[in-house]
Nucleic acid binder design. Structure first.
Lengths: 219, 219
DNA sequence: AATTGTGAACCTCTTCACAGCT
DNA sequence: AGCTGTGAAGAGGTTCACAATT
């Protein structure tokens, strides 16, 4: 008998690249629906994303058969199926570690709330920020982390604190049972991949990737 | 004879995942050097990143042989070789499209400048922002885009504007000869991959990926 | 006639395993 | 003895090509 810990890679074993493409499909379908388009073929939708139509069909095949042969996909129907698959039909409670400039950008970003990600609490160690509000969201003392996560029923934590303290605060969140993290700190947070999911957003790494490609193309 | 346009995928054809890991190696080596560590084995370095040692060695093999059999790698030496490979030995001039909250986070972020990415100009269409400074950096009218890019010798453009206007401004930059973009807008910018490199940083997509994994693990 | 769903082929990246060097 | 560099094997993701369906 092998270990029965909750595994993030499920039996269907959907690759992360596929999930990221589902997000894009979802976005385009919402646009198309708003434009009054009722139906679309895999060819037309895939061209909007500069990918192959077979890629789109294979991605969907992980979850079922949503189209009609000869006709294509119902825009509204596929859109809502994708929302169900992505789990964005129900809202999430989110907390942000670090109430700095990036946190300001996140709290004022209009794209999260309509998609069901509600930032409920901010945490910082700066006395000047604690107790104040940021775009209507309370800043708590990071020392009260476990209590605040519990109180707001937080399911996702966004990490925007400096590298030095990121791992320690992250570990605290994991101990409190948080299973999903969006990490903006430029380090790999050490964690057990069978228990916790971390999505890294690393702008400085992306800049270096650009630097690499610019350097290559000069030769 | 096939087309002779500058290709980003060079003859060595290094996968992007490898380049991203090179950034991580580089980061860890700088830390190790600062801690006074002189030498490290592929096993020890790879464990810091939770990857296999063979992965690290294969990544380096795209560029040459930098280690000593039986001994491992010289921390200082490998660190500087990686900086050369990544192209981060020379500085880059960067402009940011959109002088909002995200731009504020970027200009105040201490991680860019020391790695040679110098934000030289900000561009916006808000009359209240044009002509002012943001952390000591001038905000220009986005109508003057070509002139500003030219004047500052901009090599990399960071896109932080709303989706509606992102593609149009992006196209203008491409026409001006910009070849590298860091895109924070939640859309895929349509472009010719043989001429331009776009690195996407899409937090709302990453949140949905987390949502997907949370949904999966509930079952 | 058009377009999906899918097995098979293909390609890319990862891991293994060991020869070769210090 | 220890550790790198690398060919070969393995795993994973993409594309092809066509039978199945409307």
């Amino acid at each position: 008998m092998d270990d029965n810990l909750m595994e993030f890679r499920t039996s269907t074993n959907v690759p992360e690249v596929t999930v990221r493409r589902l997000c894009q499909y979802s976005r385009h379908l919402e646009d198309l629906r708003d434009q009054g388009v009722k139906n679309i073929s895999s060819k037309a939708l895939s061209e909007l994303m500069q990918i192959k139509d077979s890629q789109l069909r294979k991605d969907l095949a992980y979850f079922g058969a949503f189209g009609v042969r000869g006709l294509g996909y119902d825009v509204e129907g596929l859109s809502s199926r994708l929302a169900t698959i992505l789990g964005t039909v129900k809202p999430y409670s989110v907390a942000v570690l670090g109430a700095g400039n990036l946190c300001a950008a996140l709290t004022s970003y209009p794209g999260f709330k309509p998609h069901g990600f509600h930032i409920q609490a901010l945490l910082d160690n700066d006395e000047n920020k604690i107790g104040r509000e940021f775009h209507g969201i309370q800043v708590y003392d990071v020392k009260r982390l476990p209590e605040v996560l519990e109180m707001h029923g937080i399911e996702i934590v966004i990490v925007t604190v400096p590298v030095k303290i990121a791992q320690e605060l992250f570990d605290q969140c994991v101990e409190c049972g948080i299973k999903a993290f969006l990490n903006f700190a430029p380090l790999r947070l050490m964690h057990d991949r069978t228990k916790v999911k971390v999505a890294d957003v690393d702008a400085s790494c992306s800049l270096k990737v650009l630097s690499f490609f610019l350097t290559q193309s000069e030769e």
